[in-house]
Design a binder for these strands. Structure first.
Lengths: 200, 200
DNA sequence: CACAAAACATACTACATAGTATTTTATTAT
DNA sequence: ATAATAAAATACTATGTAGTATGTTTTGTG
């Protein structure tokens, strides 16, 4: 195989296995050894492609995590249609689309925020970037809703965006404590109530 | 010193230092060695009082964590007064009362939920107990608000309780990414909006 | 006071960990 | 083809880890 292509492939393989293991078992307790066992390559390959575990962590955040949140939570916000309906369906549909595995392990971003964000500024910055991009996407949609007279102009778009994100990340954590979806139903009901009341 | 008293004191000392270290550095990366270095005792003392690290973890959750959440977030809900005002002040005042240290490290319960709840059922159960107690306290207050015609009778008390808890835990995590309180201000604004709309 | 038991200390084992040094194998350029 | 370089493997170091085994000291009891 061509060298550049091969190199890129290995980096991606490491990235994918890392993301999976970080998600399932946490960042700190996932060792480089475990990751490389999953890739069926060796430590030599790892340290050839990544400077250290921290660099890998940052790559996972800015490449894998960012993409995941973008596709699931941001892209739908830029679609055409009634802003309020989009808001509602994005949050609710996303939640309903999660597999058992994803419900059990929560939000990979929220897990990292709570596990490692307060012990390395670099992780903080990388994770913050995703949160702010998400916030912006929400604000864009809410503002559009206002200008189209679907959403109450007197509410603060940013406040609503922050509150929506907080509740979503919060419930993703809390759901980890259960092995059924009852708590998600309550969340959805609470969310609907909230959204009904920012109508114009 | 009397033996029983001495034993209880050491257990408490270990519990306090553990809580502090788990909170600051996470559960998995806090070793028994580090804890015992903090207590200025030795490993022998630890394994005399606790069977293993898991038992300690469970003790920290059901003793230290439960107490913290109860005092900060539940006890105020049982005070007399306008239910809606109590709801608002409890969430907002608590948030405003946090030290820089507590803002930096987030909610100790939420940290544990996201770090370890999906890798040991015992932790899951212990943490769930606290969440459900908190939920009950909120439902009690919201129901009281309804019966006193302060809160809209048509809303679901449980849904509101779940949504409030989710958003609170969520923002405690997100705040860890920042070194200022702007995001908290947005959260408070979003929360106020929410509470204004469950009025009767 | 003796001796039993609890509280704690010391010394250890076996294994996991991040990262390095060195070697082997595959790819590319001349 | 061969020399150079990239990709990956192997072998290693130094340190951290949970837990155990066995001591020593302190406290309680007949």
């Amino acid at each position: 195989m061509e060298q550049r292509q091969k190199s890129e492939l290995t980096k991606q393989l490491i990235l994918n296995e890392s993301f999976k293991l970080f998600y399932e078992n946490g960042f700190k307790t996932t060792s480089v050894d475990k990751i490389m066992k999953a890739t069926k390559l060796t430590k030599g390959a790892f340290y050839h492609h990544y400077k250290n575990k921290k660099e890998l962590g940052l790559a996972v955040i800015s490449l894998k995590l960012q993409k995941r949140i973008y596709e699931g939570m941001m892209a739908p916000l830029y679609e055409p249609g009634d802003a309020l309906v989009i808001l509602k369906t994005t949050f609710i549909d996303r939640l309903k689309s999660f597999s058992v595995h994803e419900k059990k392990h929560g939000c990979p971003m929220n897990n990292l925020i709570n596990e490692i964000s307060d012990y390395e500024i670099a992780y903080q910055i990388a994770l913050k970037r995703i949160i702010e991009e998400w916030q912006s996407a929400l604000i864009y949609l809410i503002d559009r809703g206002k200008s189209e007279n679907v959403i109450n102009k007197s509410i603060s778009s940013k406040a609503v965006a922050v509150y929506l994100i907080s509740a979503f990340e919060g419930i993703r954590g809390i759901r980890k404590l259960y092995d059924n979806d009852f708590i998600l139903e309550e969340y959805i009901s609470g969310l609907s109530l909230y959204l009904n009341q920012i109508k114009s």
